[in-house]
Design a protein around this nucleic acid. Structure first.
Lengths: 251, 251
DNA sequence: ATGTCTTTGTGAACGCGTGCACAAAGATGG
DNA sequence: CCATCTTTGTGCACGCGTTCACAAAGACAT
């Protein structure tokens, strides 16, 4: 899960649990694949396998949306695709702006998964004048001076931040002030936003660090009984807080 | 959080909860910033604010690592940086391969957050012969025919998949067979791996869909008392599973 | 119609994560 | 050495999410 979570707990909408909402796109993807193969119906067991989850969980998830299955048969694929799409709000068009057209911003602009799910890249914005006017993914990059105008003219409510961390908060503030109420943040920074604004965070470095933790654990368990991987002092807080401890972390 | 989760529950290592592990990198980042400003100590309250979490949660998280704080004073920044780095396994070098050097792969190769945290891009791999030999982020792209050799020669245990979804599973299988035991998957596919291999998933499209859900909910709640956003049929399972329902989802 | 077989939908139990609230610990000043 | 004040570390309760297990519902064959 490259998925950091930054959510106020008031996410409970009409009663669909947040965990369920997070899985709906997964089901939708699996269902779309089935739909393309013209499979008419699917059982919870099959669909769960395709989505990589437990079948009981899947059934409970769907039960929050209503009773869309037929006992003894399964779920109608097309119907379910429609229901989930509607529930997720994908039956409408979502204009999105991407701020910060570096490597990552450009990658996102080219990413097919956006357009294919009701999301439309309305504008690319960058602070570098040298970028202004350049075409990325067939869209002309605009200067960040015009950010507010771009957002309001296009009715943008979702913004993607792919800037360096130093300016992310400032960009975020301007987006929010201009009317954006949902932000997908790729900058490694904690964004503070007013109530009513949703922030989701994607942090590549964090994901790798979590993997490293488990990787280290695996390596350490191979030779059981040995002292843990690196140093040795495992015991209580003997060692004073100041002094000899090397600062291993690079900038 | 752009963080999808795909984890076997056996993640429990020596007792550090998975949720805590996921937050350690956050603390580490905040602490590193403090360290650069030469701040000697920090209270749980301050650090929690910087990391964007509750202070009680932070203290409980740290309590799993041991008693590293001083009551009445707070935590020693340098010492804590070291302890967390060690716990996450960042005191050692992790060679990483990136497979699939498209827009996203190139963006990751250039991403600073990798090198700065003990991760080293050992190789870039792509299936396109036209890419072979091209320099990306100062590293020559190698052909995927040599994947197995590259992995074993460099002792790589962490692989990053940024290929198109169609080949992701196949690439994953080859990585695992070559000895990779941790995978960060950016392809929108459910990867199946043998036990003992960790997969974390970053799915940009899913994050946007979750945002769209909340966005739609906000829009719908503005005019309270109205019927929910799109259509109207909210009631029980009247409508038969087959028939009139339009398939709105594009491919 | 009736019986059998498949699959859904959900009640209930369990476990993890979160947050409150407070006692213990130590620093600091007199 | 004692009193006070700050801040940690944690026991406890609560709520969410997951999973099991099964009854209800419907399809299908006879």
């Amino acid at each position: 899960m490259a998925t950091g979570r930054t959510h106020r707990p008031a996410t409970r909408s009409r009663g669909i649990p947040e965990a369920t909402v997070a899985r709906l796109p997964l089901y939708l993807r699996a269902l779309t694949a089935l739909s393309e193969r013209s499979v008419p119906t699917v059982s919870s067991e099959e669909l769960a396998a395709a989505a990589g989850v437990n079948s009981a969980k899947l059934r409970k998830d769907f039960s929050y949306l209503g009773s869309y299955g037929t006992r003894g048969v399964g779920y109608d694929v097309e119907y379910l695709v429609y229901q989930i799409s509607r529930e997720l709000g994908l039956t409408q068009d979502w204009p999105v702006v991407i701020v910060g057209i570096g490597n990552l911003g450009a990658a996102l602009a080219n990413y097919g998964g956006f357009a294919s799910r009701g999301f439309r890249v309305a504008a690319l914005i960058d602070a570098d004048p040298a970028m202004t006017g350049r075409q990325v993914a067939g869209i002309a990059v605009q200067h960040s001076d015009d950010l507010e105008k771009i957002v309001s003219d296009n009715g943008v409510s979702i913004g993607v931040i792919t800037t360096p961390p130093g300016v992310a908060q400032q960009v975020c503030d301007r987006l929010v002030a201009a009317g954006v109420t949902s932000i997908l943040n790729f900058a490694p920074t904690v964004l503070s936003v007013p109530d009513g604004v949703d922030v989701r965070k994607v942090d590549l470095s964090i994901e790798l660090q979590i993997l490293a933790f488990h990787e280290q654990r695996k390596a350490g368990e191979e030779h059981e009984g040995t002292v843990p991987p690196v140093a040795a002092h495992q015991d209580s807080s003997e060692q004073g807080p100041d002094g000899d401890v090397p600062a291993v972390m690079p900038a």
